[in-house]
Each structure stands twice: as structure tokens, then as C-alpha cells.
Design a protein around this nucleic acid. Structure first.
Lengths: 252, 252
DNA sequence: CGAGTACATTGCAGAAGGTGCAACGAGGAG
DNA sequence: CTCCTCGTTGCACCTTCTGCAATGTACTCG
């Protein structure tokens, strides 16, 4: 649509992979060197690329600062990272940290299972997660104020990914009530039939649920029941992270 | 220089901070909505931004994937992260992980000192480090094959940042020999007069030095001598990371 | 329930910005 | 010392981007 921008993006990608000379850049885009030069200079001004002493262009720190900015709450990530790692080691399963940002829930950290899983989980840091067909999504939704929950679900078009998906508002609300009562959520293959999860909420200093940790496994590795056996560790991890964020559990 | 690209970058920045509606986007840039729309659509195609159900634009996962790609060697980061954290906790000082990428040395991870330092270190993940006026730079240089060292230093213009800077090739080479012999490097305020560092090399499975860990403090907090007392921990951390990368120390 | 409002989206003509050319400059190799 | 390659600059042309106006769509309020 906007080809100069497309060209710029193309160059960013290349530069991130491998140092790029001006002539290479022009070659890749199939444009004149002067054109490539101007694009690179613009990107350099934004520190999206950086010019090395040798005259090659490489990715710049601007991009990383941006992702940091976007992933926001580096606090949360920083505090959570060692706990996630611990949890991964103790359970052996893949661990996710997801957070509500804007209108959606995205993964902000992930610790892969140490096992040489034949099957890689497709989740990626920065990706949005289904808000109603995931354990992290449901556990966050469950603790959101009524109006907030309504706002998030207002635009959602429910889709029945698998037989277990809660694919309408009524059954989802019932599930959320259940989740809210027991304090954790599961994902019984609700998005991908063979992927199981258990998730627990993370609270900030005001007690608001703002994120969630989960452990995930494909059914071949562990059934949902087996995952649920790890629940004490999961809940402890979530609580520990919450405490680091300044949360003090009310004595109820 | 290329204003459509500048505009695109501007929008990326905004979207990373806060969900953005089309009208806002147009307002920010001072252009017509249709213009803003086309830019956003282009960015969306590259997944630099993503459109939420509510119609707002937020940062997209493409950016994060890019930084991951650029920081490369996620292996190194992953393996190193917990060790760095440990080292930070034990020493109390800021810990850096730097790596040789292309022609330069960049920080690929950082664990800030837990202390409420009045002075923040200006280092940032993704930023390039001076190759000859930093502990990490020198320790990596010291173990590089002769030709590689020459290549990296060929384009360098030496600058005497402070009285302690090794500002010419001859004195730098002498220093590198010393570093190579004892197995670690210091930065005695060679770039910024009040910033002290001690760094140790990290090796990959072939035994090549590819990165370095360092502990850093401003002189008010700790003198170089005090940092050197932490040397055993630093060296142990470096070796542990090297082992995780598959390095097996030769019995010399 | 229906009109009104606010917002996103599309097509098109004009114009501004981007493009390629050619010439210059700098650095390295032989 | 000369040639060659690569990065950089100024400029005229033309492609591409822009803004307008009209259409479509979703939400609101009477």
C-alpha cells in the first residue's frame, strides 16, 4: 500500500538478520542506491538501524526500546522472570506470563519446557491470546470488574474452536464464576484440542488482577489432571509475584 | 528525509505507548485520516501494529520478533539470565551481558542494581559499547584471533574520553595482552571517569570467546578494588554460562 | 424503533515528495 | 600512483502519496 514504508520495513528486517551495506540494501529492494540511502538515513534517525564503523547498517537500539515500551510493565517481567524459571524447572512444563494490555491479553514472557518437545507451542511473546479460550484469559476475565469484562467481551465474536470451547457469553460467564470462586482456571483443550493449561492470577499492589501465570502441556505429555497436581506450585508462584508487586493478601 | 517513513515511525511509537484510534493517529501526524489509515494498514501488514477488536491500533508482535531476531542468540540470553540475576543479587551491583555481533559489541542483557541508585547507568540493551574503552569490550578483544581483532579495530578512531583511556593501538594491545593473561578485564573509568567495571569472558562450545559478563558500579558506590573482590563470583558466573553453552574447560 | 452522529473506509485528481541519473568524493588494492 | 569500488550529493522528472468528498457502518439517544 505505501511502498516506501514497505521498503523501509524490508530493510529493517534484513538489517536485523545481518549487517547490510548500502549497495546490498539497494539490491535487495531493487532501487537506486540513493533511494536506499535515504531510507536508511531516516531509519537511522529513529535509531531503528545503526551505522557501524565499517559503514554497514545493523539493527538499532530504537527497536528494542520500543519492544520494552510496548511490553510495558518491565517491572512485572523483571520481578516475574526468576519465578517463572523456577516454576518451569519444578514442573517441567512450559510456563507463560500473560498480561492485560489495552483491549487484549498478550504473552509478555515465556519459559519453554526444557524437554526436547517434538511439538513446539506456537505461543510467542507479544502475541495476543484468545481472551475466552485460554486459561490465562479466563482467569484474568474472572477477576475483572463487571463493566471492564463487558467492555472486553463486547467486540468478541465467539468461535467454537474445539468441542470444549465456551463459545457463548452465557456459558463463559458461568465458567468465569466458577473460576473466580476457586481461584484458578484451566484450559481443557478449548483452543487447540491437545493443549492443556492451568492458570493463576497475579495482582498488583491495589489487589487488582492484572496478569496471569500458566503452565501448559500438550496432552501427550501431561493430562489436565496431571497439570492440576502442580497447582500448589503454580499458586505459590503467582502469589510470590503478586507480593513482589506490592500485593498484600487480605486476611479473609 | 523521507517523511512518510518518519510518519510511520511516529505512529509505531505512539501505538507502542497506548492504543491508538485512527482519528487520533491522523491528529498526531497532522494529516488526513485516509493518509493515517494507509500508513497503519501498511504497518499492520508487517505486524508492526495490530488492530484490536475495538478498532484501535496497538503495537504488534512483529516488533518483538524482530528484536528477538536482532538480539540473536536467544540461547545465550536464556541460559545467562538466571545466572546474571544471581550475580546481581550476590554482588549488589549492576550486571551486564555483552556480545560481539557483526562489527560491534552490544549489550544484550542487563540486570539493574537493586539499590535505588540516584545515578542511573546509561547503558541500554541493544546499545553498542565502546570496544576499547569498556571492560566487556577489552575482554572480548583480548581473546579474539589476531586477524579478527585487527578487523574490528581497523575502523576505530581512538578518542581519549578520560585520562585512563587506552587511546592508541599500542597501549591498547599491551593492555589486551595483560587481560588475556589474567583472564579478566577492568574498566578504570576509561569511558566515564566515575564508572568502574570488571568483566569476564564467556565461551561457546568451541571454546571461542563470544560474549562477556561484567559488574559495574559508580565510584561513589564501590571502588575498582572493591569490585575486584567480587571477581571469584564473576568468574564463576562466566564459567557457568559457558558450560551451559556447551563449553568444557580444557585441562591445561 | 428510527433518526442522528461519529467514525472508518474507498476513489480519484492534484501535487508534493520520492526516485534515478550523473557527477563528485573517499578509501583500498594492486 | 592509478584504478576501481563504494558511499554521498544536487537536481529534474515522474511516481506515489495526499486530501477531499462521498459512502458505509456501528453506536446513541430520543
Amino acid at each position: 500500500m505505501a511502498q516506501s514504508i514497505e521498503r523501509a520495513i524490508n530493510l529493517i528486517r534484513r538489517a536485523a538478520e545481518h549487517p547490510l551495506t548500502l549497495t546490498e540494501a539497494a539490491g535487495v529492494l531493487g532501487v537506486h542506491k540513493s533511494t536506499a540511502l535515504r531510507i536508511l538515513q531516516t531509519l537511522e534517525a529513529a535509531r531503528f538501524v545503526r551505522k557501524t564503523g565499517a559503514g554497514t547498517y545493523v539493527f538499532g537500539s530504537g527497536l528494542i526500546e520500543l519492544s520494552d515500551l510496548a511490553l510495558g510493565s518491565m517491572d512485572l517481567r523483571q520481578f516475574a522472570a526468576p519465578q517463572l524459571r523456577d516454576l518451569q524447572r519444578k514442573t517441567g512444563h512450559t510456563v507463560h506470563l500473560a498480561q492485560l494490555t489495552g483491549d487484549e491479553i498478550i504473552y509478555i514472557d515465556k519459559v519453554d519446557s526444557a524437554a526436547f518437545d517434538a511439538v513446539k507451542l506456537p505461543s510467542r511473546i507479544g502475541r495476543a491470546v484468545s481472551i475466552y479460550a485460554s486459561a490465562v484469559g479466563k482467569v484474568i476475565l474472572a477477576y475483572l470488574p463487571r463493566e471492564e469484562r463487558d467492555r472486553l467481551l463486547a467486540h468478541v465474536e465467539f468461535e467454537r474452536y474445539t468441542p470444549t470451547t465456551f463459545a457463548d457469553r452465557a456459558s463463559l460467564d458461568a465458567e468465569l464464576t466458577r473460576v473466580g470462586e476457586r481461584g484458578w482456571a484451566t484450559d481443557n483443550g478449548e483452543h487447540d484440542a491437545y493443549v492443556m493449561c492451568v492458570a493463576a492470577p497475579i495482582r498488583d499492589s491495589r489487589g487488582h488482577v492484572i496478569a496471569a501465570v500458566s503452565i501448559t502441556a500438550i496432552e501427550v505429555i501431561a493430562t489436565l489432571g496431571q497439570l492440576e497436581q502442580r497447582l500448589p506450585m503454580l499458586l505459590e508462584t503467582a502469589e510470590r509475584i503478586s507480593r513482589e508487586l506490592g500485593y498484600t493478601p487480605a486476611e479473609s
